[in-house]
Amino acid sequence: MRLIGVGMGPGDPELVTVKAVRVLSEADRVFVPVLDGTDTGRAEATVRAHAGHDRIERLVFALNERTDAARRERHWDAAGARIVEWLRAAGGTAAFATIGDPNVYSTFTYLSQTVHALLPEAVIETVPGVTAMQALAAAANVPLSEGTEPLTLLPLARGGVAPLREALANDGSVVVYKAGRHLSEVAEAVKEAGREAVLGTHLGLPDERVDRLSDVDGAAPYLSTVFVPAVRTSRGGKI
């Protein structure tokens, strides 16, 4: 019995790794997270380019729940119980496809803990995937980090921008996930720090957009990414 969390990258089927494609093709069952059981989520849409549709099963999660912890946990429990039920009945390998990387702000973290608690003998593994910050750096054609620069990754789904202001005071690149609702505050913090930033929306999808943050007015989708590059004045100056 084996459960493998598979990173699907930002949504572009061509950014899925060769290993991920192999795991998806060999898995007896491929579980995908969705907000609504009747809809195709981003992870499933990417999976369908590489795995047989008859092996895909949707698991409903409260992916956009920010305040009701009990509701989130009910979905984790239900999804974990379903996977354990399948593993016990089939005894094979199940894959769980997740956008980005399964070890970076991923639902798979909580799912794997649930499955392990219910079925300790199950082997749990992960296959890394391309993250949104990597996809945005590539789309913007700006290195994420170089030399001795630190790289700070901040989620802003909850709370204010105080951690961002602190990070911007240091010499290094800063990436902000889930900044959509706080976009105006993020833009103001970047401006006050004398820095520039880019905003990536729908990364890896046909309607992908990369804009200068200072040119964007209003909010952005939940999964938007902001990239504030380090200040660089010469080639190799940070080595």
Rank of each mutant, 00 (worst) to 15 (best):
A78T: 10
E85L: 08
E85T: 11
L87K: 01
L87W: 06
A90R: 13
G91M: 02
G91A: 03
G92N: 08
S106T: 05
S106E: 08
T107D: 01
F108K: 06
F108T: 02
L111F: 04
S112I: 02
V115S: 10
H116K: 14
A117F: 02
L118R: 14
E121I: 00
E121G: 10
V123Y: 00
V123G: 12
I124D: 02
V127H: 12
G129F: 10
T131G: 03
A132G: 01
A132H: 00
M133S: 07
M133V: 14
A138W: 00
A139V: 00
A140V: 00
A140Q: 01
A140D: 00
N141K: 10
N141M: 07
T152L: 01
L153H: 07
L154P: 03
L154I: 15
L156M: 02
L156R: 05
A157L: 13
R158D: 10
V161M: 08
V161H: 10
V161Y: 10
V161S: 12
R165P: 01
E166N: 12
A167M: 11
N170C: 13
D171C: 07
D171R: 14
G172N: 05
G172L: 06
S173E: 01
S173H: 06
V174G: 04
V176T: 09
Y177P: 00
V186D: 07
V186K: 11
A187N: 12
V190M: 05
V190Q: 08
E192A: 15
A193T: 11
G194M: 05
G194Y: 09
V198H: 13
L199H: 04
L199M: 04
G200W: 07
H202T: 01
G204T: 08
L205H: 08
P206C: 05
D207F: 04
E208D: 04
E208R: 10
